[in-house]
């Protein structure tokens, strides 16, 4: 067994007095796509917040490449390689496309490879090259999502945490986003994908966790999960 890139051990977390996560255990293996699926309010975003350090857990340990990063602030986690694509295409509307990419490569580690990363990103998203001097707020919904992904790739992620990348996009754009995720896997990117779109996620993921009411109720390689009775009934409707 190789060492997982990211590991959550027995995470309990919440807001104020409200407990949201009840003992989450997860592993993200190198070079794979791990999906964390569940409906609204299951605790998916909270899990991601713990992983990125925006929210500190009440108890439990977050490990990155076998070192404890539970108390590392978010900006330092981004520096070591835990990078998030936030939900809802969060961008800085008044910054240009190119400025986003520049800020993506903010850490020292990423700065050294700025030009390689830029080539890769422009190759993946030629649209962004055409629009590099445009303000992010003026891009279309699909382009904004691509920019959010491109920005995080500029950070040279060792694990990419994607928070509902298909949320609020038109169906053909959803397919586009999943194609990009598939391409990233081919490039060897390690991804933790958090999604409500169970059907599409099962197509691209290698390993799947199902989150319900703050607990992981099912996990397994995606072929097995796809065929399980529970998933077929609850999420796929077949």
């Amino acid at each position: 067994m190789t060492v997982p890139v990211l590991e959550l051990n027995n995470i309990e977390a919440g807001y104020g007095r409200v407990q949201v996560l009840w003992g989450i255990n997860m592993k993200v293996e190198k070079g794979s796509i791990t999906a964390l699926l569940g409906s609204n309010g299951a605790g998916k975003t909270t899990t991601l917040r713990v992983a990125t350090g925006i929210l500190y857990p009440w108890s439990g340990i977050v490990k990155f490449e076998n070192t404890d990063v539970t108390n590392l602030p978010p900006s330092s986690r981004a520096e070591v390689g835990i990078v998030m694509v936030p939900e809802g295409r969060r961008l800085w509307p008044k910054l240009t496309v190119y400025e986003h990419l520049e800020l993506g490569a903010y850490s020292k580690r990423a700065k050294e490879k700025f030009h390689d990363s830029l080539d890769l990103v422009y190759q993946l998203f030629p649209r962004l090259k055409e629009r590099k001097n445009q303000l992010a707020g003026t891009l279309s919904g699909g382009e904004q999502q691509m920019l959010a992904i491109a920005r995080s790739l500029m950070s040279r992620p060792k694990v990419l945490l994607m928070d509902e990348p298909s949320l609020g996009l038109a169906p053909h754009l959803v397919i586009e986003v999943f194609k990009v995720i598939d391409k990233l896997r081919e490039l060897g990117t390690t991804i933790l994908l958090v999604e409500q779109n169970v059907y599409m996620s099962l197509q691209v993921a290698d390993y799947v966790y199902i989150l319900e009411n703050g607990r992981i109720t099912l996990e397994g390689i995606s072929e097995e999960v796809k065929d399980s009775e529970k998933i077929r009934k609850a999420y796929l409707g077949i």
Partner: peptide, 24 residues
Amino acid sequence: TKMGIAMRATIENAMLATVLGINP
């Protein structure tokens, strides 16, 4: 300058800047 752009980014959305490695 990178610092100046990072400053504008932090002003627009501090949490977003933080998760991308900008120390607020």
